[in-house]
């Protein structure tokens, strides 16, 4: 790791102010990606602004029509929240599938969304549920937020404060895991709200999370895994690597979408 200066502000406003004044600053959330990246010297910020003491960035609030999750809320807290398990069980379920128990004790929803790893789980939930990413400066709709591999609409010095998820009628998430890292080789989040069905795919796309419109159309006609029999996803634009080639990933999208639909509640 290259040297850096460490800062630990005690609320979100101070964190944004500190980061705004410093050259080459990066926010540290749970550190589950940033620290390994710094250890490999793939990232070398001059200043690290740790959000760990920003208690105002933590917590889960369930309202009548939406759930608001603070950016520094850890995966374990999202997975174990009784209120969230009632409101959006698929989201609690997804958080419980991230990494392993020790990783879930550190990793945060804001960190995951800010990093936008193309195989991370939360981006699929945010896109399928039509979440709003709230920062210290503005509100960004999920549709506009994810802009590519590890790329988001966030600007320098902009920090996610919370994420607002509208409560769907039904939702489900399923993923085919990489056996070592537990990242999604393909993960599919399906959400039904009124007559609209949204389906987001993570792990597969060569520019990150995307909506599977073909599957959305089939599920809009009838929200049942049977509607997906024979639905073939195109392999164009999907990743090929040692774990799975693009055609296999395309096949897995339909399979995971079926399982997610069966699980949806």
């Amino acid at each position: 790791m290259y040297p850096f200066t460490y800062h630990q502000p005690e609320n979100a406003r101070k964190a944004a102010t500190v980061a705004g004044k410093l050259e080459d600053a990066k926010f540290l959330a749970g550190g589950m990606t940033l620290l390994p990246t710094m250890k490999q010297r793939l990232a070398s910020p001059a200043n690290l602004v740790d959000l760990a003491k920003c208690d105002d960035l933590r917590g889960i609030e369930v309202a009548a029509r939406s759930v608001t999750i603070g950016a520094m809320t850890r995966h374990v807290d999202v997975a174990n929240s009784k209120e969230l398990q009632e409101a959006i069980p698929a989201l609690a379920d997804l958080a419980g599938m991230i990494g392993d128990p020790a990783v879930r004790n550190r990793g945060t929803i804001g960190g995951s969304l800010a990093n936008n790893d193309p195989a991370a789980d939360y981006p699929a939930a945010a896109l399928a549920l039509g979440a709003t990413i709230v920062t210290n400066k503005r509100k960004i709709e999920a549709e506009q937020y994810f802009t590519g591999l590890f790329e988001t609409a966030l600007e320098d010095g902009e920090v996610i404060t919370k994420v607002v998820f509208p409560i769907p009628a039904k939702a489900g998430y399923e993923k085919f895991r990489n056996p070592a890292s537990r990242y999604a080789i393909v993960g599919v989040f399906v959400a039904k709200k009124g007559s609209e069905v949204r389906v987001a795919v993570t792990g597969a796309g060569s520019s990150g999370v995307f909506r599977a419109t073909k599957i959305e159309a089939a599920l809009t006609a009838k929200f049942s895994s049977k509607s997906l029999e024979g639905v073939k996803m195109p392999a164009e634009g999907l990743n090929s690597d040692i774990h799975a080639d693009a055609e296999y990933r395309a096949h897995l999208i339909t399979v995971m979408a079926k399982r997610a639909t069966d699980k949806a509640k």
């Binding site: 630990q8 760990a52 128990p101 020790a102 004790n105 550190r106």
Partner: peptide
């Protein structure tokens, strides 16, 4: 809580 100590800063 169990954590992986290779991925946490002592200073934090």
């Amino acid at each position: 809580a169990a954590i992986k100590s290779c991925t946490a800063l002592a200073v934090a």
